[in-house]
Structure formats: C-alpha cells, structure tokens
C-alpha cells in the first residue's frame, strides 16, 4: 500500500480564469459527450511552480473545489510567461462551470472568469464525468 495516500495532499488557492479554445470548440461540435471534448475541457493550466508546490506532474489529475462544487481535471503547464503563480486557466466548459459562484449581486452575470478555488492532487482519481 502506498503510504503517501494517507498523507494530506498540499493545497493551493487559485484564481481561475476561463478562456475559449478553438480545438475544444471543434471537439464540442463533433461530439459534446465524446472523449476529445472531455480531454480538451477537463484541464487546468497552472504555473510550473504551482504544479511543483502541489506535488503533481503535468498530466496528473487534481481536485478543484470551493463552496459551489468539486471537479477533477488534469493539470497542465500553462506555458505562459511571465510567471503567474496563483492564477490558473481553464477552457470554458461544464467542468469550469461546476466551480462558478452563484453570487451575482443581482446583475444576472456570473463571474465566469473570476473563480476562486482550492487545488490539490487527486491522487489518481479519474476526471469528472457529467450526468446530472
């Protein structure tokens, strides 16, 4: 048995900004329940230093959670410069929408691009599947 599985995984507070991705959009049009759409949607792009602090490698799954929901996605290195520790990026999708706050201040506009969540290693847990 892996002794590490009993240790609490390091947690990191992240501000998640969502974005559009042409390849993910094409995958959605072709099959919104397909593997390609899930692979291109259920990801979070992190600063390499944040990946290290979470003790996860690129391609590992991470748990993202806040008071609105929880989702398991794959971690990737953002490749963006300059460093952006604490800021992470997700393509706009049902996976990012699991974490968007329902607080709108009565404006009708959710904060799709301003999500606060905690990230931690999912220790091999599978990417979240959707069926409400």
């Amino acid at each position: 048995m892996d002794f590490g599985s009993f240790l609490a995984a390091p947690e990191l507070k992240v501000k998640i900004v969502t974005y559009r991705d042409i390849f993910q959009n094409k995958a959605m049009i072709e099959d919104r329940f397909g593997e390609d759409y899930r692979t291109r949607s259920a990801i979070i792009k992190l600063d390499p230093a944040d990946l290290k602090s979470l003790s996860v490698k690129k391609g590992d799954t991470v748990i993202l959670k806040n008071s609105f929901g929880k989702v398991v996605v794959k971690a990737e290195e953002s490749g963006y410069e300059p460093p952006h520790r604490g800021i992470a990026y997700m393509p706009n999708s049902p996976w990012s929408n699991m974490l968007v706050s329902n607080e709108t201040g009565g404006t009708g506009v959710p904060k799709f691009k301003d999500i606060e969540a905690t990230a931690s290693s999912a220790k091999g847990e599978k990417v979240t599947d959707f069926e409400f």
Partner: peptide, 26 residues
C-alpha cells in the same frame, strides 16, 4: 445545463424543460 454555472443551472432540473436543438445536449 452546460453553459451556466451548475450552482444556478441546477434549478432547471426542478422544472419541466422543452428543448429544441439540432444536438443531444446535457
């Protein structure tokens, strides 16, 4: 159900829905 925050869209599960769409969706 896919494009709104789940914390808000889940209310749609409490009321009858009629969808008109070329695709199967959530």
């Amino acid at each position: 159900l896919a494009s709104l925050p789940h914390s808000i869209a889940k209310q749609l599960l409490e009321i009858p829905l009629i969808t008109i769409d070329p695709c199967e969706t959530l």
